[in-house]
Design a protein around this nucleic acid. Structure first.
Length: 942
RNA sequence: GCGGAUAUGGCGUAAUUGGUAGCCGCGCUAGACUUAGGAUCUAGUUCUGUAAGGAGUGGGGGUUCGAGUCCCCCUAUCCGCACCA
């Protein structure tokens, strides 16, 4: 009987589906385990072999855990909202709802062929109103909460209003856009509009004028993680900074907890480091500098942030960012024109230009001076774009001797440089002829008044103490992490549950959710930033009629304008893992029972490219829900594995430049300059050998191609590149499933190397894995003996149980596959026909190759199906050797091997060495030292 | 510039965590069976050498009886961040 994968694989897949084998319940006496994949964007291109890599790894682990008796939640869904889906829809001129539906169907078809154990009854789609209702609901909660820094927790806005009415802003330490101070009386005297304005300053979801990343080409604003090097991640279009009124999430409020939480999760160090860098925590001091000789009494001081308070005696100038609001007030009349020109120039520069010219120093003197609070010196204030508006206070004290950027600026404009830190205690030099600054935070202070002679670290503390005592500053922590801009001027996303009354945003009551995305006549974005939802004619009326619970809406017949932006892609993906726990709940996001049962994700598998996006947002989202008492754990993803990117392996043919119809095989090329390499579809190349007939048929221009062959073959060149349609190097998993079967594909993807490692896709070795399955099949179907199995067969079995179990536990799936191959070869050599030996082996293989395992389990007379089987019990007694072969070394050099009983002592082992005839050559006297490592080596030092 | 990771045959990789480096697979070589084979099976395959032997885990140094593995210094490649005060 042949291994007929194309018959048996669909048959078992149908069986699993029809019997609901992988359906999982939220109540089980078994221990629980939650294995999650990062759900895919259903893009138009379909899956390539890179996608399933992580899914196969997580499926193996999920199946393994199930066999070990766990109740395993292993769901899948689609991240269907957001830019990629919409861009694809625009390109193909179809409505995104239709293309998304089609793409999902295609993805599902491809996924089903690979034989995953997903519980599809829990499928989640971010574009489904039943799901995004809870995305909108969470947004409302964010809107109605603020972050209390004292409690380190989100609190209801209603409590804040009450507090303001009683005590005003006194004693409040809350995350906010700008610090405010007012009394209870003032609060009470304000009208609704003013109060809402104040509350907006504290809300965790807030509307504000902020500098945003505006991408005209995409017609929308983007979050920081969606922009790299001044270009949009999607499409690579230029991005400019623009002041716009946008919704943001006050994720910065959680910065400290996002850093702290990394201590408690089992992620790779590199990913933790990526997140720490992105959050960018730095300790330092905020210091107020007073202005010298300002007229009105207005704007008499400004705040700076520094991580080097110890260098305050070395300040020789101050710098404001071009956006700084103080500039207009302080600039001197003589300098006004020049400063305003500079500010205008700096603001109009694109982010890309600015980043490209980082090395170029520019700036203008404002004509104004500040006073150094410790030295009373008069210090010139400059404006320069090397100071960023978005970090700290947008103003710095410049210490050119000890900061390389300040140093470059001082050199360029001929400003004084003064040494205040030395590596040689008490010794200082004239810093004006230094060639570079001394940035290290080591050494001692010099020329620094009373802190001179202190170590840098102590000087920092001393200076902070002093400025705190003087009431002009404080110890503080700054974060690089900025609030997440949450609105997109696009169609294909969750609508905001927000309406405007007198220009003030209010939330639509949660009872009215979902606020469904309306049909529009035109869903394309506009270059002006006018959201496509503006085209929805009837929408506002529909919403109004649904919101009968809101008295304000019923009483007033006016149709209030709705928020027309939609939420970004990361909105829907930030909490989807929680929804899988209870996906069909129409009353709540997820039930308390469900979240208390599953807790959080035990194992999350996905790409590291989400390190500064999704994985930050999801952690923030979860922490917020944790504060509301909804999430059971503060961190959503306990263990995280990053699967490596699969790159493409492109093939090339070489066209003769002198004769365009002639293609030269790689080995026959004498000079690369004589040929043009042309990408060729990898599907018509096998092991770098071109199928010349299919090549002629591939494209009309090659129909008459002639070839210069080596050994009768045309050998193609190859190169590792990104997997992409344009390079004809996309490997479609369907083709491989059709040719070799799903089990071969699964095994081969794992066999390729460690899951975490990036690697080029190369189909070259797939034959070997397929050959193994055929052998394994033969071994299984030929087994007819119901006896126990020989000792050596059982030894092979138990060694395999041990090795494979250990390998799976440490996610080393490539070595597991090798182990199966070795075991199979050994058992074939032994002529094993014992079903009792092969049945447990089939269970071991089941997580990797579930279809063949089911079939063989059945053939070998196993009870029920492999899914119901138990992981084989390890009997260690089979692993114990009677005797051990020891390499014998003299002075570290291996000389020969002897066999010693396994239980031998050092004494007995030494006797055995002395007795060995080979020893006579070296062992003349007593050895100086004997190193006996039980089971490993005997080393004799002469 | 800062941070992280990686480096082993022609190729993908492995090494019981400090104990005979190169398991398993690809590819290649030879052979068997075949009308044929891109099927199957057998043997070989780190390099060098006819052989005995010698060399060998990116390079250099160190610790150790013993280093792919631990420590220090380089080099190369990949990834992340990048005027973050």
């Amino acid at each position: 009987m042949d291994y007929n994968f194309s018959e048996l694989e669909p048959r078992w897949q149908r069986y699993w589906r029809e019997e609901g084998v992988y359906r999982v319940t939220n109540d089980s006496a078994k221990p629980h385990y939650y294995v999650l994949d990062m759900f895919p964007y259903p893009s138009g291109a379909g899956l390539h072999v890179g996608h399933p890599l992580g899914y196969i790894a997580s499926d193996i682990y999920a199946r393994y855990k199930r066999l070990r008796g766990y109740n395993v939640l292993h769901p899948m869904g689609y991240d269907a909202y957001g830019l990629p889906a919409e861009q694809y829809a625009i390109q193909t001129g179809q409505h995104p709802a239709i293309t998304t539906e089609q793409n999902i169907a295609r993805y599902r078809e491809q996924l089903d062929k690979i034989g995953f154990s997903f519980d599809w009854s829990r499928e989640v789609r971010t574009c489904d109103p039943k799901y995004y209702r809870w995305t909108q609901w969470t947004f409302i909660q964010l809107f109605e909460h603020y972050y209390d820094n004292t409690l380190q927790k989100a609190q209801p806005i209603a409590a804040l209003e009450e507090r303001f009415a009683q005590r005003g802003s006194e004693g409040l330490d809350a995350a906010c856009s700008e610090p405010l101070a007012f009394s209870a009386e003032e609060w009470k005297s304000w009208d609704e509009g003013r109060r809402q304005q104040v509350l907006m300053n504290y809300r965790l979801a807030y509307l504000a004028d902020t500098y945003v990343n505006w991408c005209a080409e995409l017609g929308t604003v983007l979050a920081n993680d969606e922009v790299v090097g001044g270009l949009s991640v999607r499409g690579g279009h230029p991005v400019e900074r623009k002041l716009m009124r946008q919704w943001s999430l006050r994720i910065s409020a959680y910065a400290q907890r996002l850093v702290d939480g990394l201590e408690h999760v089992d992620w790779t160090d590199s990913l933790k480091e990526i997140q720490r860098n992105w959050i960018g925590r730095s300790e330092g001091a905020a210091v107020w500098f007073k202005m010298d000789g300002v007229k009105d009494g207005e704007a008499t001081q400004f705040e700076i942030f520094t991580t080097r308070p110890d260098t305050i005696y070395g300040v020789t100038f101050m710098v404001l960012c071009p956006e700084h609001e103080l500039i207009d007030h302080i600039v001197s009349d003589e300098q006004r024109e020049q400063v305003m020109d500079y500010v205008a120039w700096a603001k109009n520069r694109s982010e890309r230009e600015r980043q490209a010219e980082v090395k170029k120093v520019s700036g203008v003197f404002t004509g104004a001076y500040a006073i150094n609070p410790l030295t009373e010196e008069r210090i010139p204030i400059w404006v320069s774009d090397y100071v960023l508006a978005g970090y700290g206070t947008g103003a710095i004290m410049a210490v050119p001797a000890h900061d390389s950027r300040d140093f470059a600026f001082a050199k360029h404009f001929g400003l004084p440089i003064r040494q205040v830190v030395t590596q040689e205690k008490g010794v200082s030099s004239d810093a004006s002829d230094w060639t570079e600054s001394m940035d290290a935070k080591t050494g001692w202070s010099v020329n620094s008044g009373e802190v001179s002679g202190l170590k840098v670290k102590d000087a920092m503390a001393a200076v902070i103490d002093k400025i705190e005592a003087m009431g002009i500053g404080r110890r503080t922590v700054n974060f690089r992490l900025r609030d997440a801009i949450f609105s997109r001027q696009r169609y294909w996303g969750e609508p905001f549950p927000i309406y405007y009354k007198n220009n003030i945003p209010y939330v639509i009551p949660a009872e009215c959710l979902p606020l469904e995305l309306p049909e529009v006549s035109d869903f394309k974005p506009t270059a002006t930033g006018e959201p496509p939802l503006g085209h929805a004619q009837k929408w506002a009326w529909d919403v109004k009629h649904r919101c009968v619970v809101d008295k304000a809406l019923i009483d007033n017949l006016t149709v209030f304008p709705l928020e027309l932006s939609t939420m970004p892609g990361f909105a829907g993906s930030s909490g989807y893992y929680l929804r899988y726990m209870d996906p069909n709940n129409d009353e709540r996001y997820f039930s308390e029972q469900a979240v208390n049962y599953w807790q959080n994700v035990d194992l999350y598998v996905g790409g590291a490219e989400h390190g500064t996006g999704h994985l930050i947002y999801a952690r923030f989202w979860n922490k917020f829900l944790f504060d509301l008492g909804m999430a059971a754990k503060e961190e959503p993803f306990q263990k995280l594995i990053n699967q490596g990117m699969i790159q493409g392996r492109s093939n090339f043919v070489y066209r003769n430049k002198a004769d365009n119809g002639l293609f030269i095989s790689k080995g026959l090329i004498k000079d690369m300059a004589d040929v043009t390499p042309i990408h060729v579809d990898i599907n018509i190349v096998d092991n770098d050998v071109l199928d010349t007939d299919r090549f002629r048929a591939w494209r009309p221009e090659f129909a008459d191609a002639r070839f210069e062959l080596e050994d009768g073959k045309y050998i193609c060149g190859w190169e590792v590149e990104k997997m992409s349609k344009s390079m004809f190097n996309v490997q479609n998993p369907d083709d491989l499933v059709a040719r070799y079967g799903a089990d071969t594909l699964r095994l081969y993807e794992m066999f390729l190397g460690p899951v975490e490692q990036a690697k080029p896709w190369d189909t070259g070795g797939i034959e070997g894995v397929h050959r193994f399955l055929k052998k394994f099949w033969r071994l299984g179907v030929n087994a007819t003996d119901d006896g126990e199995g020989t000792k050596s067969e059982l030894k092979v079995l138990h060694q395999t149980i041990k090795k494979v179990t250990d390998d799976i536990e440490r996610f080393s799936f490539n070595t597991s596959v090798s182990t199966f191959m070795i075991a199979t070869n050994q058992l074939i050599d032994m002529g094993c026909r014992h079903r009792a030996v092969l049945r447990p082996l089939v269970v071991l293989i089941a997580p990797f190759a579930p279809h063949i395992a089911e079939e063989l389990w059945h053939q070998l007379g196993g009870d029920g199906t492999v899914c119901d089987a138990a992981w084989p019990q390890l009997d260690e007694s089979f692993l114990v050797e009677d005797s051990v072969k020891y390499p014998v070394q003299f002075n570290g050099k291996m000389r020969f091997t002897i066999e010693v009983p396994a239980a031998a002592t050092q004494q007995e082992a030494m006797e055995a060495v002395k007795a060995a005839p080979e020893s006579a050559k070296w062992l003349t006297g007593e050895p100086r030292k004997v190193i006996f490592v039980p089971g490993k080596i005997i080393n004799i030092v002469l």
